[in-house]
C-alpha cells in the first residue's frame, strides 16, 4: 500500500500527473489513492518531488 505523509506533501498534485493508472485523485487539500486501480508501480513514490508518498513500512523509521 502507498501512503501519504501530509507533513511533507505540498498539495501540488503532481502525483496525479505522474500516475500511469490515473489512480490518484484530489478532492480537497491532499491527494488520495484509489486502491482498486493502483498497481503499486511506485512511479508516484519515486516521482514525488519531496518524497511524501511512500510504500507502507518503507523508510518509516528513518530519521
Amino acid at each position: 500500500m502507498i501512503i501519504l505523509d501530509k507533513e511533507l506533501c505540498t498539495g501540488c498534485s503532481g502525483c496525479m500527473m505522474l500516475c500511469p493508472q490515473f489512480a490518484i485523485y484530489q478532492i480537497d487539500e491532499y491527494p488520495m489513492i484509489d486502491k482498486s486501480t493502483c498497481t503499486l508501480c511506485g512511479v508516484c513514490v519515486s516521482g514525488c518531488p519531496v518524497g511524501a508518498l511512500k510504500f507502507l513500512g518503507d523508510g518509516m523509521n528513518k530519521e
Binding site: G14, M16, M17, L18, C19, F22, Q26, V43, G47
Partner: peptide, 26 residues
C-alpha cells in the same frame, strides 16, 4: 484542470505521459 489526468481519461483521451517527458520540480 492542470494535473487531473482522470478527467482527461473520462473524456476518452489517453492522458498517459511517457516518464521521460515529465519534469519533476522542487
Amino acid at each position: 484542470c492542470g494535473t487531473d489526468n482522470r478527467l482527461l481519461n473520462k473524456l476518452g483521451l489517453n492522458p498517459y505521459i511517457p516518464p521521460d517527458d515529465m519534469i519533476v520540480s522542487a
